[in-house]
Design a protein around this nucleic acid. Sequence first.
DNA 1: TATGAATGAGGCTTCATTCAT
DNA 2: GATGAATGAAGCCTCATTCAT
Lengths: 221, 221, 221, 221
Amino acid sequence: MTKSKSAKPVKAKSAGAKPRQPDVTRRNILDAALVEFAAKGLAGARVDEIAARSGSNKRMIYEYFGNKEGLWLTVLENAYTRMREEEHAIDVARMKPEEGMRYLMEFNFKFCSRNPEFIALLNAENLHKASYLKDSKKIRELYTPLLVVITDLLQRGQKEGVFRKNVDPVELYTTIAALGFFYFSNIHTLSTIFGRNLLSAKQQKIRLDHSMEVVLGFLRP
Amino acid sequence: MTKSKSAKPVKAKSAGAKPRQPDVTRRNILDAALVEFAAKGLAGARVDEIAARSGSNKRMIYEYFGNKEGLWLTVLENAYTRMREEEHAIDVARMKPEEGMRYLMEFNFKFCSRNPEFIALLNAENLHKASYLKDSKKIRELYTPLLVVITDLLQRGQKEGVFRKNVDPVELYTTIAALGFFYFSNIHTLSTIFGRNLLSAKQQKIRLDHSMEVVLGFLRP
Amino acid sequence: MTKSKSAKPVKAKSAGAKPRQPDVTRRNILDAALVEFAAKGLAGARVDEIAARSGSNKRMIYEYFGNKEGLWLTVLENAYTRMREEEHAIDVARMKPEEGMRYLMEFNFKFCSRNPEFIALLNAENLHKASYLKDSKKIRELYTPLLVVITDLLQRGQKEGVFRKNVDPVELYTTIAALGFFYFSNIHTLSTIFGRNLLSAKQQKIRLDHSMEVVLGFLRP
Amino acid sequence: MTKSKSAKPVKAKSAGAKPRQPDVTRRNILDAALVEFAAKGLAGARVDEIAARSGSNKRMIYEYFGNKEGLWLTVLENAYTRMREEEHAIDVARMKPEEGMRYLMEFNFKFCSRNPEFIALLNAENLHKASYLKDSKKIRELYTPLLVVITDLLQRGQKEGVFRKNVDPVELYTTIAALGFFYFSNIHTLSTIFGRNLLSAKQQKIRLDHSMEVVLGFLRP
DNA sequence: TATGAATGAGGCTTCATTCAT
DNA sequence: GATGAATGAAGCCTCATTCAT
């Protein structure tokens, strides 16, 4: 939906023809569902709305995903998978430790900024106590490559004497995730409370800079 | 609202008649609504369920709160108010800067731990882009006392030479909030992904300790 | 529905007033459901149609009966109960054996004739292998008073020497039921096959007379 | 229809291609439909289910039978035809009257026992007031051979003095049909009410013996 | 002939809300 | 103030049927 304007029937025959492309139909439904679910959560989302937005029809949703919950799970899995894929593409192996750490944090922060649907989806799933995620085979197989990268950076930094010792990679990962995620997850209530527009590029830069200072300040030996 | 016990006799009239205690009824509805809304969000919550759980009936909900959304807003305002009240009770004026900072972080972390409904409510409200909160007069009047306390601690710490300079109190506040809130807000998905029970006391202690190290490590001059 | 034209709101206030009489509403739904279910079976019946015909609305059906299947079961139980009540009212204790037997058969035959919905309902339930009936507590408690009456008639008849010996009451009951029920249960296909209108009073009389002859001929010593 | 094996080779073309055997496909659909319709009636049956069970697909159903109702009618006609064919094969011309009558009743009873789908189908069609049957040209041409046989047996029996006079063959036929059909048609509700398993061979024998006694007892001069 | 995707109408059920008592 | 019956709109899902390949 986002920018898949070109996702329309590739071989559109004559007018009124029914596209007969399962993959495209499926993809369109998932795109539409992501938007709807992210905007309203599982309970608030409307199957009719998803069907309409997808350019397909309700029946297809049930054909492909069984029911609303099946669609929810698939959307969730997709979002996670996409995130992990981007994470996986990160290559900081050749960067210096501190530079690498900055890069990682920047990626994490900007990923959250670019993908508000992902944020919304995760929050909604946490509302359900991750009950759908728990039943997902796919997700449990996904590990966090970021963790490996962080571990590597920490070791190299410690060896080079630029990072302190005794830092648990999992805790550091959680901290980095928190610093990026929380800001965007609570951006609307925070904006309201503080009376500032935290969505602005300026505010985002301030936040990212501060977060980096915090983590790097902490890491310094 | 909080404790506006009217002078009316708490005990019910006599035999046969149902007790007529508007305040109690109202309070019961709010309590029931908090649980229901926190568990299922605004769209997923059921007015019937709230009525049943409150021991009252649906008519009363509409009598007191107008409609479901009015109830949602009131529950939200109540949660915020209660949180702010606890925050307000904090007194770190006489503590040493570093001790005070630790105390603040601990309070924030444990408040999140003790109030999962608050977390759920905030996330749900962010899903709606804080649209209800924005319309609330009450909330906009609430400022964050914590901010004042943090500013004071920072100044004292810098004067005493135990804290670095040029630290923006708002940013630091956000960081502290993030480190506490995120862990609990995403506790179910994180537990699933990491394969650990992050709700356990042990894991919570590890996280809190790490968070403190991060913030204090960063603050050190 | 049948002749409960007078069942309308007893205390109908002004125009457009909502009758607030649970029992009447419930009764109206059951009456409407009997007609609809008998005409189309469980799967073919339409909840919308039942709601419309009952003068109430769909929501009430679910309020009182849970779902379509719950309504089906209740209608079935009601039909059985009503039938058993009429059966119970039969008093042949003072009739002579042969006269009593004729009377019983006539009642059975005419009950089927008068209650085509009952026939249809039973057939439909047999299509489901009596799965709803099996779960009904109510039905299992209903015994067949007719059986007692038949047993009594047989004994008296044998004592008086007008009936043969060694007749199993259960088998005789089944035979009598079959002779009445089958004719009405299959009346449409039989009419089509034979090219006669078996619904006519004349044909019904012929059938009843023959049936009586069969049973009494058999019973003669 | 029955065995109109065309001259085409039964075996499929060669590798890769699906077998193209219209008659087989048609037959498979009818077999699947019989089971589905008998189990759930016309309204309850699912075209998808029939297609799946037949090993073919929905398109073929519409190709051959037009629509669901067309399929229903064909299944009904087929069932009737098969029944009549079996009836037709009966040859009691050389049996003694009483023996012949016993044989007929046994056939009728056992046919019902062997063909529960036929029972279910007839009941379902009666629910529709035989509306499909009435429009069937095929069915109206089918007469009941049994009727001829019964007439012959009655005449011979009366001539030989073993049967009473003034017995209407149509009525006797109906009685015989009732005694067999009813038992199986209502076997589930009767089993539930009586608390016995009437499907057992033992119970069936008891019933058949009793039915014969009834009819023969009645026929005795 | 055969297949499976596509569809619109409609089915069952639930919900927030209102009204009579 | 309190209760529970009543309601219309709308939600999720299914079905018979058609169409493109």
